[in-house]
Amino acid sequence: MVRSLQEFSEILRYKELLRNLVARDIKKRYKRSTLGFLWVMLDPLLMMLVFYIIFSGLFGKTVGNYTAYVITGIIMWQLFAQGTKVSSMAFIHNRNLISKIHLPTAIFPIAIVGSSVAHFIFSLVPLFIIILFSGTIPSYYIPLLPVTIALIVIFSVGISLTISTLTVFFHDVVYIYDVILIGWMYLSAIFYPVTILPQKLQILMSLNPLYHYISLFRACIYDTTLPIIEHLIFGTAFSIISFAIGWTIYHQNRDKIIFYI
């Protein structure tokens, strides 16, 4: 417990490193492309377009405001999936630093989630453009947006710590997690409404953390009919559980990581 707190405070002390790692990731990713930074905003737009073309005929009539439904789902999913997926290699890719300089090692997966948050913030621009142009009335729950983001970030950090630590010892985790993510995406009601599922599956849906975060996000952006209290309770519980598990796995193994990366 004491060691955990020490490490937390050390991570806070290294916040400049966290900032630089996030900035490096963003700079490097777009430095060489012609459109550069615009890609951050184009990416969710194009993905939404694809989903829209394929699925609007199928589900367009079952969901009011299908455009807003899809883009909110995609953006929230990307925030989670991008961060946790890339972070599986967080320790291995930074082997050079971890094995030479004393650092709070957890900072590497956390920084990857951080750059995913940065991307998310930029993708809010096309999101609001679409919301406004499609004539949607923004939700009065919007002050809850920071809470929603905090919850999904804590949840993602927990998963990132788990995946990145396990990958050091069993490399297969990278591939297993890739498959899990694909299945998870289809189970998260991103481009179809939950109501098309059989009753039994709808109940199971409340065990899917991403379903709650995506719903919370939709409630914050445009859909005031959603049961926001329920999603908040479930979302908070899943964040705490995920973070507790991730931190424990990381912390139990932290001294061993250096011998295996």
């Binding site: 002390r13 290294y14 916040k15 400049e16 490193l17 630089n20 790692l21 630093l97």
Partner: peptide, 25 residues
Amino acid sequence: SAGFDPELTGRENIYLNASILGFSR
């Protein structure tokens, strides 16, 4: 060279590297 990134400029690398040593901005 452990903390350097070839794609970043010298200036950016100074900030990155010094923050690896635990310094504030």
